[in-house]
Write a protein that binds this DNA or RNA. Structure first.
Lengths: 199, 199, 199, 199
DNA sequence: GATGAATGAGTCTTCATTCAT
DNA sequence: AATGAATGAAGACTCATTCAT
């Protein structure tokens, strides 16, 4: 088994790189619209305006493409939090900003959102990598805040998973399914839980 | 659109009822193991030990079966909370018990868990019914508690979605993927958030 | 790996048995005409007058079908020699009759001939089974004749392979490619070699 | 039909000649390993370390390449017998030496062996040319021996085909499939048949 | 009600070949 | 000469669904 299995095949020319990009974009749109199983390679290449065969010049398989896409998107999501965390303020404040940013993102890129979610079933390792990574980054932030004395109680990995679950469902409900509340509002209200619980 | 569309076809005899039940169980196992798309009707009927054709005596289609299953399971999950809520104690206490019960359930019936989750993509209306229903019940509990003065701050549907997201991800992480923490522990630690937030 | 892998799937009804037989016959004709790689499942099912999908009701794959065919034909070829050997006469006489019979068969069933030959590349185990089996049966006959004192010199597996090679090439040349000499003539002349060598 | 069809395209420069040679060698290895149909042009050019497109600078098509290879190899096999025949001794003796040489060759170049054999199905004319040529050369040798009085009985083309069949199968069995007997031994034992038949 | 044979649209994937650079 | 991107026809195989028995 080649380590490069499932990785996009490296184009050797600039033209190749462009074609690969086109296919990738078409695939993101297609998967976002129809989900993995309803999407077809023919349809993706048609969207991309390239021949069917060209797909296989750049990707091993439909699964490999999906995985590549999830990895790519997972990275995009990860990037969201970076600038916010860099500013390093109050932990609850930080999570509030992260959530706000995340909700905006879910609105603007609901297809990415759906793709990562569907990965739970289609590309489980990629899905796990995404969420385990996310949870451990949140956990790390909480621990750091605790070390700085900004959090008094215990912090636990469980808190991190609770937060990520909250974020994901809020993003789904208020960013993808219905947009009847603004990201700021959703984030602010949800954040009360982190701030002071239900009282 | 017939209201009865997608509903299991009513068996007319006792024998028929048993066959239908057998198929339903086999389907739950199959979908839980392989997910919707990898599952096949032949395989389900083989598990059930009935002929392929018998499937269509009791179900409209593969989708209809799945939907029926999700509805059935959704109802099972709903039942979980009923006795707990009936005891009507402190709201945070209530959510703690509900979460604990839910985590136990996720452990014992991870296949049900996966099926409902996959419904987001395969049977979106059933999925929505399940989660919108869940959220509104939580929301109702919170409002009731607020009315009884047990909660001082504002309560919002957003809180309900945050809680449901928490629960789902904790169930997935600690009930399905890895069982390295007990349901009680997970619920207790997660509940701190509802109790007093991160401080 | 199931032991039944590659074996034809057992039909459960008489109708099924007929369909399977039809497909098998169509396949023999197709493979004989075009060879394995140029033959296609669509074409085979068209010849058979059944739907494409029906093929997969009865066979695992194109390879499995081919293998099944080779096994079946190998058996037919084996049957050729049985009655002749049963008569048990002079060994050279016996090989003469076997060769004659074989040459007649090659003429009448050149497609079978080609299929077994192509198996060397497409279904090597089946091919080996066929020829190793054939060689060992010839060898056994030679040994028996030797034991009966009908052969004075040493007998060796090598002789058996030499004889089989002779037979195959004569069948190909005078039974399949060109039929410019009668089976009896070919067998008689070739048999001189076994009789007394080149002198 | 152009007489030059299927012939390798003539390289115009020394560099070109080298590239063509490289491709030819890579193809021999590939075809020997995987057989004609499993081999692919991409894979051949990768083995050769040249670009895919370069293939078509030197060969008309995959079939043409194969045919060229068979012709080339057929010629190599033909060369085997030349020095032996030149020495012109006793005919049985000659065939013994030819067979020995041939068996050695089959051992050392089993890929060539397989390629010529597969040509029966892939490049039938080349295959026919090879074996008809071989048979007629053997036949010619026998006739010459007969003329010189070294063979007393009749000689026939049929004898030639019998001999070639023997050789091919012995080469396959003892040179390619299993090498449990030395070429000398195999040739010596097989030669008894030519010498004095089975007695 | 139960059975399982039959159907064929739909998909993925391969690969020889062409051609612009 | 050499390169490798692009093409698309062709083929194996799956599987939900129908229907005669």
């Amino acid at each position: 088994m080649d380590a490069a299995a499932n990785l996009p095949r490296e184009p050797r020319t600039e033209r190749g790189r462009r074609t690969q990009r086109t296919i990738l974009d078409a695939a993101a749109a297609e998967f976002g619209d129809k989900g993995f199983h309803e999407s077809s390679i023919v349809s993706i290449t048609q969207r991309a305006g390239v021949a069917l065969g060209s797909f296989y010049t750049y990707f091993e398989s439909k699964e490999a493409l999906f995985k590549a896409l999830v990895l790519d998107m997972s990275e995009q999501v990860r990037q969201l939090a970076l600038p916010i965390v860099a500013e390093a303020r109050d932990p609850v404040e930080t999570e509030l900003s992260v959530l706000t940013r995340f909700l905006e993102f879910a609105r603007e890129h609901s297809e990415i959102y759906r793709i990562i979610d569907e990965a739970e079933f289609v590309a489980p390792e990629a899905w796990r990598a995404h969420y385990y990574g996310g949870a451990s980054r949140i956990f790390a932030r909480l621990k750091a805040a605790k070390d700085r004395g900004e959090i008094t109680g215990e912090v636990d990995e469980i808190h991190a998973w609770a937060i990520i679950g909250m974020n994901v469902f809020l993003g789904l409900r208020y960013g993808v399914l219905e947009r009847d509340r603004s990201p700021e509002e959703v984030a602010a209200i949800a954040n009360q839980l982190l701030q002071r619980g239900l009282r």
